[in-house]
Simulated assay, not measured.
Amino acid sequence: MSATGQEKDLTPPEISARKGKAPLVCLTAYTTPIARLVDPHCDVVLVGDSVGMVLHGLPTTLGVTLDMMIMHGQAMRRGLERALMVVDMPFGSYEESPEQAFRNAARVMAETGCAAVKLEGGEVMAETIRFLTGRGVPVMAHVGLTPQAVNAFGGYRVQGRGRDAERIRRDALAVAEAGALAVVLEKVPETLARGITEEIAIPTIGIGASSACDGQILVVDDMLGLFGDFRPKFVKRYAELGQAAEAAIATYAREVKERRFPAAEHVFGEGPKTVNGEEAA
């Protein structure tokens, strides 16, 4: 049994049923060791296409491929026991048609073992969401700032201010009506996120949105402080692991140069003792 008392994988219907109840805890992560760390504490773990920027050094998410998402999805699956695993569909893998989206989503689910996929887009993707959910593919939606459309937006700008609020509202209503299990609201004004949360019937998951959302999500590397020069307003750093790692690496380098590492306890003698035929430590 996990630390939260959950004995089995959470399911898409169970996540949808959390609307208006205990807030959903969500993180974006990409590797087996991190999966094992977040699993006892998270309801949803998203294998985000942010992996392209976080782990592969890409300037945006646009260069992420389906094969990359599947590889990282497989790594995450090996470390999860209870959290719902959702995998991002990368740019170009679902926009052409509902049929293209189903073909690629089915491959992602079959090869990673994820329980749902995530698509960016509101009204324009409602038909695709309806097509997928009607064929057994649970979908998490994503509206507001959608990073795959960063070029169209002219940068990572807040969406939904002023008259533009109605566009975001319509997007959220459209994906809810199309059957999405939940919707991510990214980088939108607090009052707009609060209003959408009150209006739609599925859980809202905020990132740069409102504490009134039905859940929150962050990129795990951001909240752990692994990047010293990346400090967006919507991220709270719960640790500064980047600084700790840099200090540890600097200490290692210094000890190697000073021949202090390896020390006697880290090397082997000429005549090792054996226990049951194996070399003792």
Rank of each mutant, 00 (worst) to 15 (best):
S2T: 14
T4M: 08
G5M: 04
L10V: 08
P12A: 02
P13F: 08
P13T: 06
I15L: 09
S16L: 09
A17L: 06
L24E: 00
T28E: 13
A29H: 03
A29Q: 11
T32V: 10
P33T: 00
P33F: 01
I34S: 06
V38T: 11
P40H: 02
H41G: 11
C42Q: 01
D43K: 01
V44G: 03
D49N: 09
S50K: 04
G52T: 03
V54C: 08
L55S: 08
G57C: 04
L58P: 02
T60I: 05
T61V: 15
V64W: 11
T65P: 09
D67K: 03
D67R: 01
M69V: 11
I70R: 02
L80H: 07
E81C: 14
E81S: 15
R82Y: 05
A83H: 05
A83I: 10
V87C: 14
P90T: 03
F91S: 01
Y94S: 06
E96P: 00
E96T: 13
S97C: 07
E99I: 10
E99F: 07
Q100V: 15
Q100H: 10
R103P: 07
A105M: 05
A106Y: 07
V108A: 00
V108L: 02
C114V: 07
K118H: 09
L119G: 03
E123D: 00
V124W: 05
M125S: 04
M125P: 00
L132E: 02
L132Q: 06
L132V: 11
L132H: 08
T133H: 06
G134Q: 05
G136Y: 03
P138L: 03
V139F: 04
M140G: 00
M140W: 12
H142D: 09
H142A: 08
H142V: 13
H142W: 13
H142G: 08
G144T: 07
Q148G: 10
A149P: 00
V150S: 00
Y156Q: 04
Y156L: 09
V158P: 01
G162A: 13
D164A: 15
R167E: 04
R169N: 06
R170D: 08
R170V: 03
D171N: 11
L173V: 12
A174P: 12
V175I: 05
A176C: 11
G179E: 01
V183N: 01
V183A: 01
V184F: 12
K187H: 13
K187S: 13
V188H: 06
P189N: 06
E190G: 06
L192A: 03
A193P: 06
G195S: 13
E198M: 03
E199S: 06
A201D: 10
G206P: 12
I207Q: 06
I207R: 04
I207M: 15
A209Y: 12
S211R: 14
A212H: 15
D214H: 12
D214C: 07
V220S: 14
D222W: 07
M223A: 06
L224A: 14
F227R: 10
R231D: 08
K233G: 02
R237E: 15
G242N: 02
A244C: 06
A248L: 14
I249Q: 07
Y252H: 11
A253F: 07
R254A: 15
E258H: 05
R260H: 13
R260K: 15
F261R: 09
A263I: 01
K273V: 11
G277W: 07
